[in-house]
Design a protein around this nucleic acid. Structure first.
Lengths: 200, 200, 200, 200
DNA sequence: TATGAATGAGCGTTCATTCAT
DNA sequence: TATGAATGAACGCTCATTCAT
């Protein structure tokens, strides 16, 4: 009963998803050195098929970045409903760091900065974060001068810090998340030498 | 008294220095995408000249990384003599972040991890940092459970955080250094969920 | 019945064959100085296409050498069935010299010495030659102390000799083949000052 | 008493000679892959000094080839006085093959074909050989239809033959010289299918 | 639609040669 | 004169992208 177009679209969507998953893995493993051929092999398709789904390599990267941002938006929205705003923020940061730890796409960040889909996804994340951080701030579990932008910018710092360790324990980043989160707390806070940035 | 042969060497040394400076700049701007040709153009020399001074591109990168590490070692040793261990540590972190802000070579870190000169330079930095951090810890200005490795790993976090801002204020990183440094302080510290790593 | 996928393969195979032919010609003309670009131009394809068919320049050279060796093996086996072992050996040497005259790949011999495919092809030639030379020896048309290795090593000598002539008659090499073949005959043979080598 | 110009010339001549010796060795070892830098290092001088003595790399190669040809001319002239023309020819071929064995410059042959100094040196060798071979022919120790050109062209064949052996006994070439020399002898000679070439 | 062969710009690197010292 | 730093053309090779099948 299903029209053939549907079937094709379903196939294509499945292909696209498996390509994204393969690319995410390959990029995380090889970083910038990952080639389209590598990704095609990992996805079990021909090189040309990658370009059927993603116009350019940059487009593929941007799609992955979008997915990551969407996952984070979802997490931020979900945790924003929590009755414990401090715990919610910490849990969000834990999810964010863990995502980054599993698939480090730092190299892709700047590259896809100008892609409109990425801009949208980031905007959405900013909005979700604004709620989450606002509640934590109002509850007094983080300083009054900490903004959504601060959380966004510090989000990946724990994993970045660990990146310089040769063979890190898979939970070492939690140490640095704890340190940074302590820095966000109001207890013993020193005044900050620079106002928070306004992100687009 | 005047060394007669030095003239040539002086020229070559000047060239080498300008090559290093140009490469530092180009790498900071373009990251891994910087080509040897780019660097040669920036330094105003022919491509072949780059290879006269640095056997491979990797060698050039390692040389820059070594220089950076040496500057940091020097700063750490200098500040270790200070009478105010807390201020000394903060000043060191300020120097480190500012260096990184001017020339971000994050991409090079991993690449030159196995170069013996880089290993040596890093070892030296670890030793210098050990003294600096030890004094701050003993003076009680940072938590008792913070080690030299923690400082080393968090050293670049403020600049990393800022990297996601499109056109950042040149001193925005100080905001994040302040937050992280507050996280290192003993006031209001929560226990850390993971022991500090042991760096080689 | 018609294999549908063969069309692409046929194209690629044709390209590969024309690449091999072009490379054979260019290498014969320019020796080691032949560049991959030269070969690509001669074959009417882009440089990258050469590397699609042959992983490296060395691989391409080895492929040509293999082909040459296989042709010689085939000739040796074919002539080994002859009822006139002396004539058969002479005909083989004629084929071998003529092949070499058309495409001198002396320079490639040593270069591809370690390629396993070349090693195999050479081993096969040695085995074929062993039969051919053995029969000639048993028939008494060549000396009793001449081995397959001798024939293998002297095989290209006639063409080599002619290489020092500026614009040689295309059959001049036959003169030197005749002289050398006379040297292999039992009539008027002097004892040899060194035993035959054992080739792998 | 000696004018300083003489001293300089003597120095220069010594330098030139040591450069030639070093180059001969390096070329024999590395063939075409030998670089001017390799030669300079082997001679213990700077790269620029090589070009003070030899305008181009080709010029250097031509000079070595000239030297080799001159040595052979000398040998040919010396042996031409012998009372045993057959032995004299064999001895000349032995010297020629041994020279080639020690320093294989096959790769250089064609390259320096058009250098006028090489042309001269070769002409001189042809003249010397003409006498040597003429006497052997007249004495009946080689066929009546063998010319100086034949000997010239077959001169290096024994060493060439051995070149395909991986780790040859240093006297293996004598085996092939003996075979080829037997081919030159009148006993059991078959008529040759092509007239001797006329070399310039 | 999916394939993978072809493309060609660009890469890191080498090296004969030039030239200021 | 001898040096070795600088040059730049050329090399082998890679890879994102295009396109015929």
């Amino acid at each position: 009963m299903a029209p053939p177009v549907r079937t094709q679209r379903a196939d294509a969507a499945r292909n696209r998803a498996s390509l994204l998953a393969a690319a995410e893995k390959v990029f995380a493993e090889k970083g910038h050195a990952a080639s389209v051929a590598d990704i095609a092999v990992a996805a079990g398709v021909a090189k040309g098929t990658v370009f059927r789904h993603f116009a350019t390599k940059e487009d593929l990267i941007a799609s992955i970045v979008c997915d990551h941002l969407a996952v984070l938006s979802g997490a931020a929205r979900k945790f924003a409903d929590s009755s414990d705003p401090g715990e919610a923020l910490l849990e969000f940061l834990t999810v964010a760091a863990d995502q980054r730890r599993q698939h480090d796409l730092t190299f892709a960040q700047t590259a896809s900065d100008h892609d409109p889909r990425v801009v949208n996804a980031r905007t959405e994340l900013h909005e979700s974060l604004d709620v989450l951080v606002g509640r934590a701030r109002e509850a007094g579990v983080i300083r009054a001068d900490i903004t959504e932008a601060d959380v966004f910018l510090l989000m990946c710092a724990p994993v970045h810090a660990v990146e310089n360790v040769a063979d890190p324990s898979p939970t070492l980043w939690r140490r640095y998340l704890a340190i940074i989160f302590d820095g966000l707390r109001p207890q013993g806070a020193h005044p900050l030498p620079h106002p928070a940035p306004v992100l687009p």
